[in-house]
Design a protein around this nucleic acid. Sequence first.
DNA 1: ATGAATGAAAG
DNA 2: CTTTCATTCAT
Length: 556
Amino acid sequence: MPAIREHDIVSTDVDDDDGMPPLVDNPNPSMTFTFFTDMSPITALSADPTVPFETIWENPLPAPPFEFAEPPESQGTFHGPERVSHGKKRDASYIPRPPNAFILFRSSFIRSQQVPEKVEGNHSTLSKIIGKYWKTLPREEREVWEAKALVAQAEHRRRYPDWRFRPGANALAKLKVKDGPQTPNRRRTGQGGRKTKADATGKKRKSGDERCAMIADLLVEGKTGVDLEDAVKRWEDCAGRDVDRKTSNADGGERKADGGGDEQKEVALANEFKSHEQAISHGARDGANADASASIRAKSNEGCPPTQVRAQTPDAIPDNRFRIPLTAMFKRSLSAPAAQPSSPDQITSHDSFDSVFANITYDTEDSPQRTRSPPSFSGEQHEDAAHAVFSESIGNLSPLVLPSILREGVPARWNDPYNLLETSLGLPSTNCPELTYALDSPSGSPVDQSFGTYSFYSMNHDFDRTVPPGYTQDTQNLYCSPKGWADCEPLYEQMPIFVNEYAEAPSAYDWCTTNNSMYTGNPDVLHHYPNDTGRFGGHEMIRMHTEGGYLPTIAY
DNA sequence: ATGAATGAAAG
DNA sequence: CTTTCATTCAT
């Protein structure tokens, strides 16, 4: 029994059924809101506390390429605290951290068993491979995982409102339990601490890294399973030959900081092998990795590619430099006091709505300037204001959704955080912080239930979320383009309406304005039609019709 | 302020 | 052990 637990607060009250924190009397209120009578609870899916937290990201629906197809036997199984995370014996009531995007990705990847055990069974090595693979993910694809992480985080907050991350607590407990010497407080020994594997590992480790890179590249090319195994085998043959050749030369046994020739040679070798493999079979995966030209020179000797340098899997996708991660966009510390301490069990759709209403503020306090993230956005202030709203929305209301998935050939959507199209609302600019979400959906069923109408309405269309950082308004054409800031006026709505990763792009949106004007349109263009009157009590209304979409695994 | 440390999954 | 990321802790 650990002396210190991270969640000690949670245990203040235990008389409830599900071990949830005390039911705080939920005041909700003070703000008047209007709802549609036909709105169904959007909480339906996640209100059940018996559902493992992990279900948030354990969505069994296959939807490549954004989700890995998993072997049948593993589907529907949960992996998480309830199942004893990973051999780590912990207090039954221990609350793990919510997973981040990468962890989710990694879990899914491993569960998908795309890399055969024979190829690599060591999880440390797998982490390396997956880490490299992760870096090659196109932005849209990574956003999916970031969004999942957001959802997971939101759900985590919902289930454990009082939980906070306490790095020190566990460490202290450890020290206490093991009063022993305890390895020098050096964690993350990275390279410094214990690289005593100098000798025999000298060559091994290096080629091991190279192997990881190679496997990652093969994955990028779309190779999995047996194909991957074969390709790896071929590479190992070639690499082995080359390594032998190299070791015969001379090697003091230096690695690390070696930046010099050997590493580069190996990289070159790997690169050319990659192109060689590409020649053998074209990768089916998307991305900017299509480089068939290099594959022409596949005149291999003994099945091994000739020596030649070639660009490898990029360490970082250029685009990512200018991209605001969803996790940053919706960032709000879990530890930040819940603006609305309502009990999870009490969360109903209306409660959710209320909480949303009641907590929308322009609090710029918790918006940490991303000092290092995006290089230079002159529109940070705007974004900050927007960020506050987003944060609250995510934190209390929750992501109804996951970020839009920009599929191949699918134009940017009006509500895509990074792609503004014609979204001018042409509405009066009255400032009114209230904001509401709602979801018309068949209530109840989990995961793969299609949802009919997805509604979003706000009492204010002018919350400062009009132009995302890096975008500027084109007053002529009424759209924003990534130029700069200049004189942006709040003519555009940027609403974080997300759809879960399995949802198709909405077929149409429509919304009603205070003028009882109705807008409708496709994801890329919205049209106006004025026939719907008086329906929404004078509030801003956006309704999104979707087809073939699914409810998010979790909703509030 | 900013870097270091922690821990989330996994076996 | 090993990854990335989010968060907290310490300087």
